[in-house]
Design a protein around this nucleic acid. Sequence first.
DNA 1: AATTACGTACAGTTTAAACTGTACAAAGTA
DNA 2: TACTTTGTACAGTTTAAACTGTACGTAATT
Lengths: 169, 169
Amino acid sequence: MVLKDHRTFEETHTKVIHEFSKTLEMFGLTPADARLFVTLYINNGPMTLDEMSEALGKSKTSMSTGIRALLDQGLVERVWKKGFRKDLYRANENLYKTFMSSYIQKWQLAADEQEQSLKAIENDLEEQVQSFSKDQQMKQANHLYQRIEDMRSFHQLIADAFHELDPNK
Amino acid sequence: MVLKDHRTFEETHTKVIHEFSKTLEMFGLTPADARLFVTLYINNGPMTLDEMSEALGKSKTSMSTGIRALLDQGLVERVWKKGFRKDLYRANENLYKTFMSSYIQKWQLAADEQEQSLKAIENDLEEQVQSFSKDQQMKQANHLYQRIEDMRSFHQLIADAFHELDPNK
DNA sequence: AATTACGTACAGTTTAAACTGTACAAAGTA
DNA sequence: TACTTTGTACAGTTTAAACTGTACGTAATT
């Protein structure tokens, strides 16, 4: 009976990992990174790369790159244990704050970058228009210009909306 | 000069498509779908599959599947023109409303599904616990149970937050 | 100082996604 | 009715991402 208990519990464990991973994928995590995070999250205490490797049945190399991705996104942190040689990692505790912050930050960064690119393109377009002669061309250019304006204000609305969501605002 | 004008304008056009696509990818669109949407969006008037194929340099089949994906997400609509045989499609006008609605809806759907799955797993776990004897097992099970609870309240918080963002709320 | 343990860079492989061409069903045209 | 045209299903191919194993640098242990 003990063996069976163990097996079904393991199965439940695995189910939780795969199910909740889907939610985290909505935040832009790759399936692999999501599973890694959930594994850490439901584990009792921090884990070593070898333990993760064992738990997920993937190579240690995969764990190493996966952990780095999670660290970069601020979803996981390294933990020190005196007299212990291996690196230990644990998932950040507060899911909502962690994921919302990370997600919003990712968005702000991307939005800023896009905004700059669009502004630059818009300037290019303005210069180009100077040398346009045909009426048809002018019309096309103006239409594109208008669209770029729309994209830019879209960025602004998004930035505002996500700022509103920020748990740290 | 006309040729050069035309070329640089085309380049600007392409740049806009690739740049703004990145923003839309943040909403979960694949790079290909995003480019398709932007192509439609900046085009003056609706387009046929053949025109999209020409504009993006991809096969008509790709356009067909891409358009379907965009239709499913409510980002694009079919347009009728009397006496015209080919299907015409145009991008929805209001970017913010369109993308926020689509995004939020996607989230609500996924969240509901996950919530149900987690609830079911939780029930399984409760049954399993009945038959557990060892103390160690009980402890593990309780820990997992607690985590599932945390995941579920996470879902709730997310649902509330996204509801707040909904332009149609 | 020599040895062992650990994490990661890198090259190569496997796996999944995107894309294409052909073929066909449905609907329009002659 | 026969003939086009149009959109999409499907199988096969290309391309990109995920993953692995080996090899090596760094740091701890003896």
